[in-house]
Protein backbone atom coordinates (compact mmCIF):
# COMPACT_ATOMS: atom_id res chain seq x y z
CA UNK A 1 0.00 0.00 0.00
CA UNK A 2 2.75 2.44 1.00
CA UNK A 3 4.67 1.38 -2.11
CA UNK A 4 1.71 2.30 -4.33
CA UNK A 5 1.50 5.72 -2.69
CA UNK A 6 5.22 6.34 -3.15
CA UNK A 7 5.03 5.28 -6.81
CA UNK A 8 1.95 7.47 -7.36
CA UNK A 9 3.60 10.54 -5.79
CA UNK A 10 6.74 9.99 -7.89
CA UNK A 11 4.64 9.60 -11.05
CA UNK A 12 2.55 12.72 -10.31
CA UNK A 13 5.71 14.65 -9.44
CA UNK A 14 7.22 14.00 -12.86
CA UNK A 15 3.90 14.52 -14.64
CA UNK A 16 3.54 17.94 -12.98
CA UNK A 17 6.17 19.19 -15.44
CA UNK A 18 3.48 19.09 -18.16
CA UNK A 19 1.84 22.04 -16.34
CA UNK A 20 4.93 23.83 -15.01
CA UNK A 21 8.42 23.30 -13.62
CA UNK A 22 7.79 22.92 -9.86
CA UNK A 23 9.67 21.86 -6.69
CA UNK A 24 7.69 18.59 -6.73
CA UNK A 25 9.00 17.87 -10.23
CA UNK A 26 12.55 18.75 -9.17
CA UNK A 27 12.34 16.39 -6.19
CA UNK A 28 11.05 13.59 -8.41
CA UNK A 29 13.78 14.30 -10.96
CA UNK A 30 16.57 14.23 -8.37
CA UNK A 31 15.07 11.11 -6.79
CA UNK A 32 15.20 9.42 -10.18
CA UNK A 33 18.83 10.45 -10.72
CA UNK A 34 19.92 9.40 -7.24
CA UNK A 35 18.11 6.05 -7.20
CA UNK A 36 19.17 5.26 -10.79
CA UNK A 37 22.83 6.04 -10.07
CA UNK A 38 22.75 4.09 -6.80
CA UNK A 39 21.11 1.12 -8.55
CA UNK A 40 23.87 0.96 -11.20
CA UNK A 41 26.54 1.45 -8.53
CA UNK A 42 25.25 -1.39 -6.33
CA UNK A 43 24.93 -3.77 -9.30
CA UNK A 44 28.46 -2.94 -10.44
CA UNK A 45 29.87 -3.39 -6.93
CA UNK A 46 28.33 -6.85 -6.73
CA UNK A 47 30.15 -7.80 -9.94
CA UNK A 48 33.50 -7.14 -8.23
CA UNK A 49 33.20 -10.50 -6.45
CA UNK A 50 32.91 -12.85 -9.47
CA UNK A 51 35.13 -10.77 -11.79
CA UNK A 52 38.01 -9.79 -9.47
CA UNK A 53 37.88 -11.37 -6.00
CA UNK A 54 37.04 -14.96 -7.04
CA UNK A 55 39.91 -15.19 -9.61
CA UNK A 56 42.35 -13.89 -6.94
CA UNK A 57 41.11 -16.55 -4.49
CA UNK A 58 41.66 -19.15 -7.25
CA UNK A 59 45.27 -18.01 -7.62
CA UNK A 60 44.83 -16.19 -10.95
CA UNK A 61 47.10 -13.32 -9.99
CA UNK A 62 47.32 -11.93 -13.55
CA UNK A 63 44.04 -10.19 -12.69
CA UNK A 64 46.17 -7.65 -10.79
CA UNK A 65 47.39 -6.22 -14.14
CA UNK A 66 43.95 -4.94 -15.27
CA UNK A 67 43.19 -3.95 -11.65
CA UNK A 68 46.36 -1.79 -11.63
CA UNK A 69 45.43 -0.39 -15.05
CA UNK A 70 41.95 0.44 -13.77
CA UNK A 71 43.41 2.19 -10.72
CA UNK A 72 45.48 4.39 -13.07
CA UNK A 73 42.20 5.96 -14.17
CA UNK A 74 42.05 7.64 -10.76
CA UNK A 75 45.11 9.69 -11.78
CA UNK A 76 42.61 12.14 -13.28
CA UNK A 77 42.17 13.48 -9.74
CA UNK A 78 45.91 14.26 -9.39
CA UNK A 79 47.21 17.32 -11.17
CA UNK A 80 50.13 16.60 -13.49
CA UNK A 81 49.55 12.84 -13.43
CA UNK A 82 46.56 12.71 -15.74
CA UNK A 83 48.63 11.30 -18.59
CA UNK A 84 48.73 7.96 -16.75
CA UNK A 85 45.08 7.50 -17.75
CA UNK A 86 46.37 6.87 -21.26
CA UNK A 87 47.34 3.26 -20.41
CA UNK A 88 43.90 1.95 -19.39
CA UNK A 89 42.18 4.07 -22.05
CA UNK A 90 44.47 2.69 -24.78
CA UNK A 91 43.75 -0.89 -23.70
CA UNK A 92 39.99 -0.30 -23.52
CA UNK A 93 39.88 1.53 -26.87
CA UNK A 94 42.03 -1.19 -28.48
CA UNK A 95 39.79 -4.03 -27.27
CA UNK A 96 36.61 -2.11 -28.12
CA UNK A 97 37.87 -1.20 -31.57
CA UNK A 98 38.99 -4.75 -32.37
CA UNK A 99 35.70 -6.27 -31.21
CA UNK A 100 33.54 -3.68 -32.94
CA UNK A 101 35.43 -3.93 -36.25
CA UNK A 102 35.02 -7.70 -36.15
CA UNK A 103 31.31 -7.41 -35.31
CA UNK A 104 30.65 -4.68 -37.86
CA UNK A 105 32.15 -6.63 -40.75
CA UNK A 106 30.15 -9.77 -39.99
CA UNK A 107 26.81 -8.42 -38.75
CA UNK A 108 26.44 -4.98 -40.28
CA UNK A 109 28.04 -5.45 -43.68
CA UNK A 110 28.33 -9.11 -44.79
CA UNK A 111 25.02 -10.25 -43.23
CA UNK A 112 23.04 -7.25 -44.49
CA UNK A 113 24.53 -7.50 -48.00
CA UNK A 114 23.90 -11.25 -48.23
CA UNK A 115 20.30 -10.88 -46.98
CA UNK A 116 19.71 -8.15 -49.58
CA UNK A 117 21.28 -10.18 -52.39
CA UNK A 118 19.63 -13.54 -51.62
CA UNK A 119 16.09 -12.10 -51.54
CA UNK A 120 16.45 -10.57 -55.00
CA UNK A 121 14.29 -13.30 -56.64
CA UNK A 122 10.99 -11.65 -55.67
CA UNK A 123 9.52 -8.20 -56.40
CA UNK A 124 9.91 -7.25 -52.74
CA UNK A 125 13.54 -8.36 -52.90
CA UNK A 126 14.20 -6.19 -55.97
CA UNK A 127 12.57 -3.15 -54.31
CA UNK A 128 14.64 -3.69 -51.15
CA UNK A 129 17.81 -4.11 -53.26
CA UNK A 130 17.15 -0.85 -55.13
CA UNK A 131 16.36 0.90 -51.83
CA UNK A 132 19.55 -0.33 -50.13
CA UNK A 133 21.76 0.75 -53.06
CA UNK A 134 20.09 4.18 -53.25
CA UNK A 135 20.37 4.75 -49.47
CA UNK A 136 24.06 3.78 -49.53
CA UNK A 137 24.63 6.20 -52.42
CA UNK A 138 22.84 8.91 -50.42
CA UNK A 139 25.52 8.50 -47.72
CA UNK A 140 28.33 8.73 -50.30
CA UNK A 141 29.69 12.02 -49.00
CA UNK A 142 32.88 12.08 -51.08
CA UNK A 143 30.79 13.82 -53.73
CA UNK A 144 28.77 16.82 -52.64
CA UNK A 145 24.99 16.66 -52.74
CA UNK A 146 24.71 20.01 -54.46
CA UNK A 147 27.59 20.03 -56.97
CA UNK A 148 27.68 18.59 -60.47
CA UNK A 149 27.03 14.85 -60.15
CA UNK A 150 26.41 12.17 -62.79
CA UNK A 151 22.62 12.03 -63.44
CA UNK A 152 22.42 8.41 -62.24
CA UNK A 153 23.95 9.35 -58.89
CA UNK A 154 21.65 12.35 -58.49
CA UNK A 155 18.54 10.26 -59.21
CA UNK A 156 19.71 7.43 -56.94
CA UNK A 157 20.26 9.91 -54.10
CA UNK A 158 16.77 11.33 -54.55
CA UNK A 159 15.25 7.84 -54.42
CA UNK A 160 17.42 7.04 -51.39
CA UNK A 161 16.13 10.13 -49.64
CA UNK A 162 12.52 9.10 -50.27
CA UNK A 163 13.24 5.63 -48.80
CA UNK A 164 14.89 7.26 -45.79
CA UNK A 165 11.98 9.64 -45.18
CA UNK A 166 9.46 6.80 -45.35
CA UNK A 167 11.57 4.75 -42.93
CA UNK A 168 12.00 7.68 -40.52
CA UNK A 169 8.25 8.33 -40.58
CA UNK A 170 7.60 4.67 -39.78
CA UNK A 171 10.23 4.54 -37.02
CA UNK A 172 8.96 7.80 -35.52
CA UNK A 173 5.40 6.47 -35.39
CA UNK A 174 6.61 3.27 -33.76
CA UNK A 175 8.43 5.27 -31.06
CA UNK A 176 5.37 7.48 -30.45
CA UNK A 177 3.17 4.38 -30.18
CA UNK A 178 5.48 2.70 -27.66
CA UNK A 179 5.71 5.86 -25.54
CA UNK A 180 1.95 6.30 -25.61
CA UNK A 181 1.59 2.71 -24.43
CA UNK A 182 3.85 3.55 -21.48
CA UNK A 183 1.82 6.68 -20.74
CA UNK A 184 -1.41 4.69 -20.79
CA UNK A 185 0.24 2.23 -18.39
CA UNK A 186 1.03 5.05 -15.97
CA UNK A 187 -2.49 6.51 -16.23
CA UNK A 188 -3.94 3.03 -15.68
CA UNK A 189 -1.75 2.68 -12.58
CA UNK A 190 -2.89 6.03 -11.17
CA UNK A 191 -6.58 5.45 -11.83
CA UNK A 192 -6.61 1.72 -11.13
CA UNK A 193 -3.97 0.60 -8.63
CA UNK A 194 -3.82 3.88 -6.73
CA UNK A 195 -7.31 5.46 -6.84
CA UNK A 196 -9.29 2.27 -7.65
CA UNK A 197 -11.49 4.22 -10.06
CA UNK A 198 -11.13 1.78 -12.96
Amino acid sequence: MAGTWIAAICTLGLMSFVIKDSPLYRLAEYTFLAVGTAYSFVLSLERLNPVIITPIKQGKYTIFIPVALGLLLYSRFFRGKQWLMGFPISVTIGVGLGLSLKGIVSSEIVKQLSDTYTSIGSLEGVLIFVGVICVILFFYFSRSNTGANPPVLAVARKIGRVFLMIAFGCMFSNVILSRMTLLLGRIKFLLGDWLNII
Binding site: I104, V105, E108, Q112, L127, G131, F139, L164, A167, C170
Partner: peptide
Protein backbone atom coordinates in the same frame (compact mmCIF):
# COMPACT_ATOMS: atom_id res chain seq x y z
CA UNK B 1 9.98 -2.80 -47.94
CA UNK B 2 11.13 0.83 -47.50
CA UNK B 3 11.92 0.58 -43.78
CA UNK B 4 13.88 -2.65 -44.25
CA UNK B 5 15.77 -1.17 -47.21
CA UNK B 6 16.57 2.08 -45.40
CA UNK B 7 17.58 0.28 -42.19
CA UNK B 8 19.92 -1.99 -44.13
CA UNK B 9 21.35 0.97 -46.04
CA UNK B 10 21.93 2.86 -42.78
CA UNK B 11 23.55 -0.21 -41.15
CA UNK B 12 25.88 -0.83 -44.10
CA UNK B 13 26.80 2.87 -44.44
CA UNK B 14 27.30 3.18 -40.68
CA UNK B 15 29.44 0.04 -40.70
CA UNK B 16 31.62 1.42 -43.49
CA UNK B 17 31.94 4.69 -41.57
CA UNK B 18 32.93 2.84 -38.38
CA UNK B 19 35.58 0.87 -40.30
Amino acid sequence: IPTTAASRGILISGGLGAI
